[in-house]
């Protein structure tokens, strides 16, 4: 367990990129998992193509890459439960909450803006 010296900051991981085309989504998730050890107030934001990280039915056999999407479902076990998804980003892509593989909070742009503004540290990928 990591020592944060009693400091608890609000960390937000902002995901705006789709999985597989680039490594950002996967390596972002690796940071999120590590952050759980520091007892910080962690949240994840998914907007723009980042919402594709959470879509059901990912099957990567044909591209010979690791399907890391089940890991999002494991986040709850690490006490990372604040997953915010941009409503407009879902709608633009013809998606709804039912298309996602994990429980999330769907938020409007204004709500997302409020959440971003209250963070101490924003890590974007």
């Amino acid at each position: 367990m990591a020592d944060a010296g009693g400091v608890v900051k609000k960390f937000m991981f902002v995901n705006r990129k789709s999985p597989y085309g680039t490594i950002y989504a996967l390596e972002s998730l690796e940071v999120v998992l590590i952050s759980a050890a520091f007892d910080q107030d962690v949240s994840l934001a998914f907007l723009d193509d980042g919402v594709y990280e959470l879509t059901k039915g990912q099957s990567t056999k044909g591209v010979e890459m690791k399907n890391f999407s089940p890991t999002y479902r494991a986040l709850e076990g690490y006490d990372i439960e604040k997953l915010y998804v941009a409503q407009e980003s879902l709608e633009e892509r013809g998606l709804s909450e039912d298309d996602l593989l994990v429980d999330v909070q769907v938020v409007s742009r204004a709500e997302m803006a409020d959440l971003m503004a209250e963070q101490d540290v924003v890590l974007s990928f």
Binding site: F11, I34, S35, A37, F38, D120, V121, L123
Partner: peptide, 20 residues
């Protein structure tokens, strides 16, 4: 070193700026 060093930097530093 490990990724914990990044999270620790976020905790210890007054500002964290990402370039990518």
């Amino acid at each position: 070193s490990g990724l914990g060093q990044l999270v620790e930097a976020g905790i210890q530093a007054d500002r964290l700026v990402v370039f990518g």
